[in-house]
């Protein structure tokens, strides 16, 4: 089976039109699109626990460092400092431009087959250890889960249970990162840190090359390319196969050689969530 995604989102107006499509009577009040929906969630997060740009800058800058090691990343040649982050223009506050993911022309594909069939293939396979899904579904107006627990909590628990491991066994994460806050609330709900502890957890390069818990090692959707759930999933598979060149987890990037990588996908405005855990054979 081939799982594929392709889009000319950057050069056409199809993604932009999709994002400002009318949702009920929201447009009457000037409310459009995904950035503002996630910004509503992020603002409530800032009220409920200690988060905000001080936390998100570590996500934007940390992922950019990975992109700078990835020749196919959109932002390969563009470095980012904390000052760059703070100086970026506002889009929908509390989000600045660099809290937002990219729009990309391109695509990704993953071949899925049985473990037995995979043994004969040219590349080493990666095994699916566990999967979980949870969909709170509520529209952003009515939602009270914007600050957690989002679908990530139950989906993560389901995936870990199926895999027969704990969060301590995860070597790296590839998180759906439509916005910086999405990465924080997802990792928080998976249990990597408590509410508001992200500001300390991310500090000091935790998710960067050389860090203790590498996250979005291609640059992610913020700095590599936006291919929906296939940005995180394809990167996890490539890392476990050892096909990542200068950004390869292990000695090359002064990180732990990965045996187990956790991936997430999020839909709507934190309305659907899937967690998939992959491992080396």
């Amino acid at each position: 089976m081939v799982l594929s995604y392709g889009h000319n989102a950057f050069s056409s107006d199809s993604m932009r039109r999709l994002l400002v499509e009318r949702n009920a009577d929201d447009a009457v009040f000037g409310h459009f699109g995904a950035a503002a929906g996630y910004a509503l969630a992020a603002r409530r997060g800032m009220h409920s626990f200690r988060t905000g740009p001080e936390t998100w800058k570590h996500i934007a800058v940390g992922q950019r460092k990975w992109a700078n090691l990835n020749p196919v990343a959109t932002m390969y040649e563009r470095t980012m400092t904390f000052d760059d982050y703070y100086n970026a223009r506002w889009v929908v506050a509390p989000f600045r431009l660099l809290d937002n993911c990219l729009m990309t022309d391109g695509g990704r594909a993953i071949v899925i087959t049985s473990a037995e069939r995979a043994r004969d293939l040219r590349h080493p396979p990666v095994l699916i250890m566990g999967m979980g899904q949870h969909n709170p579904a509520y529209d952003v107006h009515q939602a009270t889960h914007l600050t957690g627990p989002t679908g990530a909590k139950k989906a993560g628990e389901m995936a870990l249970t199926m895999a027969g491991i704990t969060i301590e066994d995860i070597d790296a994460c590839e998180i759906y990162d439509c916005f910086t806050y999405t990465v924080e609330i997802t990792l928080q709900d998976y249990g990597f840190f408590g509410p508001g502890e992200g500001q300390d957890w991310f500090r000091g390069g935790t998710i960067e090359p050389g860090g203790g818990m590498p996250v979005n090692t291609s640059g992610g959707q913020l700095s590599e390319a936006y291919y929906m759930g296939l940005t995180p999933l394809s990167e996890a598979a490539m890392q476990l196969m050892g096909r990542c060149g200068r950004r390869q987890l292990g000695p090359t990037t002064n990180t732990k050689s990965p045996a187990v990588i956790l991936c997430s996908d999020t839909g709507g405005i934190l309305q659907t969530h899937t967690c998939i855990i992959l491992r080396r054979p």
């Binding site: 000037g30 699109g33 952003v140």
Partner: peptide, 25 residues
């Protein structure tokens, strides 16, 4: 106010003269 955002971009021409404006729940 449960939560709110401040639009600095007008996604519809009708809101061009309103930015920055506040959308809230």
């Amino acid at each position: 106010v449960y939560t709110f955002v401040v639009y600095h971009v007008a996604y519809h021409p009708g809101f061009k003269d309103d930015v920055p404006y506040v959308v809230a729940v």
